[in-house]
Amino acid sequence: MPRPLDHARRAELLSGVIAYIADHGLAELSLRPLAEYLGTSSRMLIHYFGTKEQMLVAALETQRPDIAALFRGIEDPAVLRSRLSHSFAINTAGHGAVSNRVLLQVLGAACVPGSPFDSYANDAIQVLVTAMTETLARIDPAHDDPEAAATLLISGMRGLIQDFWITGDEDRVTRAMNRLVEQAVLYSR
């Protein structure tokens, strides 16, 4: 009879997976070193998650913020600009930065044809673009193409966050972020 899952231990492992990948990267992820870091065995990781890829997707899903709540109730461009600037700050510092570093690696891996992360990456992008599109359309019902503006804003922010992690140039990237937000939201009045 299979061993029942300890859900508290599973949640603890998922949190550790995110921390490990943020520190060691996704490219060379191997179950044995990961299991050692987590204080378990590769056999137990398979028991809890099935495959390495399923484990990573499960870990990422525990980190996904409530995107609808992030944009809920925004009726004014100034509030949207403020919320986006706050989101940028969270995703470049602290706990949000850890999960974002992992997410960026997964999005990169999803670019490979047949990637096991393709579905997760598509969903992660679509959730953000949909929420931003709805917000821009709500702020300015006459906006000519809120979906294109949302795509530009979300993709631009993602690129700037990646730029920040690669270069560490906080001043330049923050200035660029402020300009991106100002220009993207400028037309939503």
Rank of each mutant, 00 (worst) to 15 (best):
G96N: 04
L70N: 06
L14C: 09
G50W: 01
L70T: 07
G114F: 14
R81P: 00
Y48L: 07
E61L: 05
Y37W: 11
I125E: 09
H86D: 03
T174K: 00
L186Q: 10
T62S: 06
T135A: 04
V57P: 03
S30V: 11
G50F: 01
Y187W: 14
H47C: 05
G108F: 10
S188A: 15
L31R: 14
V181F: 03
L160Y: 03
R43D: 13
A27F: 15
D169M: 00
D123C: 14
I21W: 06
D163W: 02
P116V: 09
N91G: 01
R81Y: 00
R72P: 07
T130C: 08
H95I: 05
S99P: 07
A124G: 09
I46G: 08
A124D: 08
R172T: 01
Y120G: 05
A109T: 12
I18P: 08
D145E: 15
D6Q: 07
T133W: 04
E61F: 06
A89T: 02
S99I: 03
N100A: 08
T40V: 11
R101Y: 12
A124T: 09
G96Y: 04
I90R: 02
F164H: 00
Y48F: 10
T51K: 06
V112L: 13
D163Y: 02
T167M: 00
W165N: 03
A184S: 10
A131C: 06
E147F: 15
H143G: 10
A59C: 06
D76K: 08
L56N: 00
G108N: 10
T51I: 11
L29D: 15
G168V: 01
P116E: 11
P146Y: 14
A150M: 06
R9C: 05
Y20I: 08
D6Y: 09
L84E: 00
W165K: 02
M55R: 00
R83M: 03
A176W: 01
L38M: 12
E36C: 10
D163N: 03
L180E: 06
S30C: 11
L84Y: 00
R64E: 03
I74D: 03
L38C: 10
Y187F: 14
L186E: 12
V112G: 13
E182D: 13
S30T: 12
D144W: 13
M44Y: 11
T130E: 13
I166Q: 10
P146I: 12
A59N: 03
I18G: 05
G159P: 04
